[in-house]
Nucleic acid binder design. Sequence first.
DNA 1: CGCCTGTGTGAGAATGGTTCTCATGACCAC
DNA 2: GTGGTCATGAGAACCATTCTCACACAGGCG
Lengths: 134, 134
Amino acid sequence: MSAPEVPVRRQTRQRTAVLALLEELDGFRTAQDLHALLRERGDAVGLATVYRALQALVDDGLVDVLRSEDGEAAYRRCSPVHHHHLVCRSCGTTVEVADPPVERWAARVAAEHGFADVQHQLEVFGTCRACAQR
Amino acid sequence: MSAPEVPVRRQTRQRTAVLALLEELDGFRTAQDLHALLRERGDAVGLATVYRALQALVDDGLVDVLRSEDGEAAYRRCSPVHHHHLVCRSCGTTVEVADPPVERWAARVAAEHGFADVQHQLEVFGTCRACAQR
DNA sequence: CGCCTGTGTGAGAATGGTTCTCATGACCAC
DNA sequence: GTGGTCATGAGAACCATTCTCACACAGGCG
Ligand SMILES: [Mn+2]
Ligand SMILES: [Mn+2]
Ligand SMILES: [Zn+2]
Ligand SMILES: [Zn+2]
């Protein structure tokens, strides 16, 4: 075993801007979206830097990443405790949901088949009330 | 409403080869993998055709598609009834699992938040017994 | 059987999200 | 303040997937 990786994160204007933008948005946004939004409001950040900032935030557990159907990654500021998402297909609005039963179920099913180091991935998609009325 | 789309699927050597290969494999494979395997064993198929055949199989519900962490799509011959997967991160071996409780849970949580047209996506990842011993 | 025609095929180009390169900029511990 | 790392950004590179389009062929019909 080597010493635990402790990547020193410097606080820069760019990383602050990316996180601040995510804070005021709800719903998942792509890196390209965030890059365009930052450019519009004046405090521009390089596209590569947006990707690097998002990756750091994901590593630190501050942001969740979701793969859309066409393979594009979408990011969202998230609470640090394990949870899942109820996402509107139309407007992207997201609700965080906890699910104790599934946690137990996943562990049990995996154990029955001899699997170890179990993780799971659960997302629920639908149309929110606002979008359904439109 | 127009007439329901009934795409006529012609039976070709290429489509037969792709499906046959998926039949004898267990675990998810990428389109690139399948293309390379077909090339190795002699009955080559164009890469674009592999993608088209896989898409048709997905549309017909004969194959499930999964997005790996790096965004690459992986395909597997699957039973036609709704189910989820227990996948080995190391060797790709897959077990199909049913999960009635989660079906109900997803529907209930979505309804509580006013969401309609609900779908869900659930995958469990782990290390299978064989890979754990290695 | 052969024809005909709308599909399917494949080599290569194009697409587009993401990552890499590398010269330059700027945190921040000391 | 200074220095040594780490971060940044413009552009190139990467690479899975899709598109293009000329050509092949599955398969219904006569
Ligand atoms: Mn969970
Ligand atoms: Mn289910
Ligand atoms: Zn909505
Ligand atoms: Zn395994």
